[in-house]
C-alpha cells in the first residue's frame, strides 16, 4: 500500500539552510507560518536574513518585490492557498517587472487533509501558469524538491514552486538527474502514458505497477516543470504511447491536464484524459490516504478507471 517515508516541508527546510550558506544574497520572507513551512530552519541559522511580515500575504509579495529590486534573492514561503489572495500583486508587481522572486507554496493539493477545504488548494497551477514570465514547478519527492530548489536559485526571473506538506515518497536517488524544464520518464511503456506532478507521481508509479499485472504497459512521466512545459516529451508520448492520462491533485480545469491538452490539440491531437479534482472543493479528513480514496485517487481506483478507458477505446 501507499508508503510515505518523508516530508516535502522537511526537504524544503533542509534546502533553505544549505542554500542560505551558498547564496549570501538570499533572504526568506515569512507570513507567520515558518513553523509549519519549516522556513524556521533558515530563521534559526540566518536570523538577519529572515524577514517576518506577519499574516499579510499581499504585503509579503510587495516586500519581496522591493528586495528583488535591490538585488536580493527573496524566497517567499507561505501556504499555496493563501498566496492566491495576493495573485494580483504577484501579477502586477513581480511578474510585470520580471523580478527575481521565488515563491514556494506549501500545503498544496490534498496534502493538508486535516485543515479542510479552506486550506486545500487545487487552483494554484491554473492561476500561476497563466501569468507571463512565471515558471511553475511541482517536485514529486524530497530529492527533486531539494534539487529543483537549488536550480531555482540559479534561474533568473519569477518562479512558483508548489509543494505538499508531508506524505512524500523518495522516488529519486541523490545522483539522479532532475533538471528544471526537462520531464523525467520514470517508467517506459507503450500502451498508454500517465503524466503527473507533485505528490501524485508516486501514485502514478503504483498505478503502472497494477496495470502491469493486467498486461498493460504504461509509461510514467514526472512533469515536475509545468511551465515551461517539456513539449518534446509530451509529443513523443502522443506518438509512442497514447492515450495520455494526467493524474493530479488539482482541479481538472487549468492544471497540468489543461496545459497538456492545450499543447497536443495544436501539435498532435491525441486523447487526453484529465483526472484530478473534478471542478470541486476539498473536504477535511483525519487521514491522507482516506482523502485520496474519497476523491477516487488511490492507485487501485485509478487502475480501475484507466482499465475502463482502455476497454472503451
Amino acid at each position: 500500500m501507499l508508503l510515505y517515508n518523508n516530508s516535502f516541508r522537511e526537504a524544503l527546510g533542509r534546502a533553505l539552510v544549505d542554500a542560505g550558506y551558498a547564496y549570501r544574497n538570499m533572504v526568506v520572507i515569512d507570513t507567520d507560518l515558518s513553523k509549519s513551512t519549516r522556513a524556521i530552519y533558515f530563521a534559526e541559522q540566518f536570523p538577519d536574513r529572515f524577514i517576518q511580515v506577519g499574516i499579510s500575504e499581499q504585503d509579503a509579495v510587495g516586500t519581496a518585490a522591493g528586495l528583488a529590486i535591490g538585488n536580493k534573492i527573496p524566497i517567499l514561503i507561505t501556504y499555496s492557498m493563501f498566496l492566491m489572495r495576493a495573485w494580483e500583486q504577484i501579477r502586477n508587481t513581480i511578474a510585470r517587472d520580471n523580478l527575481n522572486v521565488k515563491i514556494v507554496g506549501t500545503h498544496s493539493g490534498l496534502s493538508d487533509y486535516l485543515d479542510g477545504s479552506s486550506h486545500q488548494c487545487f487552483e494554484d497551477i491554473a492561476l500561476m501558469r497563466v501569468i507571463p514570465n512565471f515558471k511553475v514547478l511541482s517536485p514529486s519527492d524530497t530529492v527533486s524538491t531539494y534539487s529543483l530548489f537549488m536550480q531555482m536559485l540559479d534561474n533568473q526571473g519569477p518562479i512558483y514552486m508548489r509543494l505538499g506538506r508531508d506524505n512524500a515518497s523518495t522516488l529519486y536517488e541523490d545522483e539522479d538527474e532532475v533538471q528544471l524544464g526537462k520531464a523525467n520518464t520514470l517508467v517506459d511503456g507503450d500502451d498508454l502514458t500517465i503524466i503527473s506532478h507533485g505528490a501524485m507521481v508516486s501514485i502514478a508509479l503504483q498505478v503502472s505497477n497494477l496495470l502491469k499485472k493486467h498486461h498493460v504497459s504504461a509509461r510514467v512521466i514526472d512533469m515536475h516543470t509545468i511551465k515551461p512545459m517539456d513539449v518534446d516529451t509530451v509529443i513523443k508520448a502522443c506518438v509512442d504511447a497514447p492515450p495520455i492520462i494526467v493524474i493530479e491533485d488539482h482541479n481538472v480545469i487549468g492544471g497540468l491536464g489543461g496545459a497538456i491538452a492545450e499543447i497536443v490539440t495544436t501539435i498532435r491531437p491525441t486523447k487526453v484524459i484529465r483526472i484530478g479534482l473534478n471542478d470541486r472543493f476539498g473536504t477535511g479528513s483525519t487521514n491522507y490516504v482516506s482523502l485520496l480514496e474519497y476523491f477516487g485517487l488511490t492507485p487501485k481506483q485509478l487502475k480501475d478507471r484507466i482499465m475502463g478507458v482502455i476497454n472503451e477505446v
Binding site: 538577519d48 504585503d59 510587495g62 516586500t63 518585490a65 522591493g66 528586495l67 529590486i69 527573496p74 502586477n92
Partner: peptide, 25 residues
C-alpha cells in the same frame, strides 16, 4: 521609478522591501 505601478495600495510594501535591503547593506 523603482517599480512599475498602477494598481493601488501596493507601493509601500515595495518600498519596505527596498528599505529593509538598504538597512541590511
Amino acid at each position: 521609478i523603482v517599480s512599475s505601478s498602477g494598481s493601488l495600495g501596493q507601493g509601500l510594501s515595495i518600498a519596505n522591501g527596498l528599505a529593509i535591503r538598504l538597512k541590511m547593506e
